[in-house]
């Protein structure tokens, strides 16, 4: 079936999103997003949606079941609070990519800015390039894979999300530490890299980071 095509330069974004929300399945192509906010947000069906161009804030936000490809950069909060499905950004993403996302797979082929995966709650995020400061802040569950470097304060106050970074980490946030890569971690990282389209990466080049679990309970002896 040919993809339905919508021209966001000519049609109202709200009308296009409303039409997408009514579809149970199928393919759609969105042209000329021109940095508009909330492009393809709130999808709840197994649609395949391709967006040709750069998006503004909250692109594919709250996604469920749909597979969204953005052929361009994404603004603040791409795939924020995603529940399932996938969002692939063929470009760079601004801050708070995948924020609070509960499930699904977010792939960013370029760089992601600050606060990538902030408060993530179960999603998987794979970044082809580097990520900015305060990424995975209070990350609760899910996996964040970074093929490049990580900025300052990675994983500050992290809960049980697992972070895999291939490059340098500028600094670790409070209660985030490097951990050993066990066989199970190589296996899950391999799977994530393959699904994200990076089958040639060697999992041995990655370091795992996670919670030291020292902030879980109040300790009257904590002093600074």
């Amino acid at each position: 079936m040919d993809a339905m095509t919508f021209d966001l330069g000519a049609e109202r974004l709200r009308d296009v999103n409303r039409t997408l929300h009514r579809l149970k399945n199928g393919r759609a192509r969105l042209k000329n997003p021109n940095g508009k906010h909330s492009v393809a947000a709130g999808l709840r069906s197994p649609l395949s949606v391709v967006v040709n161009g750069h998006c503004g804030y909250y692109a594919a936000g709250m996604n469920q079941l749909a597979d969204v490809i953005i052929e361009g950069n994404a603004g603040v909060g791409v795939a924020e609070n995603m529940m399932s499905g996938s969002v692939r950004v063929h470009g760079n993403a601004s801050q708070s990519a995948g924020a609070t996302a509960h499930g699904g797979l977010l792939v960013i082929t370029g760089d992601a800015a600050a606060r990538c995966g902030i408060s993530m709650k179960g999603a998987d995020i794979v970044v082809g390039g580097s990520i900015g400061h305060m990424s995975a802040f209070m990350a609760q569950a899910g996996r964040l894979v970074v093929r490049g470097d990580a900025g300052e304060a990675l994983g500050d106050s992290i809960y049980e999300a697992r972070l895999y970074v291939r490059g340098k980490v500028a600094s670790l946030g409070a209660d985030c530490i490097a951990k050993d890569m066990l066989a199970e971690h190589h296996t899950e990282l391999r799977d994530l890299l393959d699904r994200a389209g990076f089958p040639d990466d060697d999992t041995a080049d990655y370091t795992r980071y996670g919670s030291a679990r020292q902030l879980y309970h109040f300790n009257a002896g904590n002093e600074y």
Binding site: G75, N92, S94, A113
Partner: peptide, 19 residues
């Protein structure tokens, strides 16, 4: 502040864009 303000500039499609 946002990319959408730059959309009308001539040659934006080939610009180097970064934060």
């Amino acid at each position: 502040s946002e990319y959408r303000a730059l959309v009308g500039l001539p040659g934006i499609e080939n610009a180097r864009i970064f934060e």
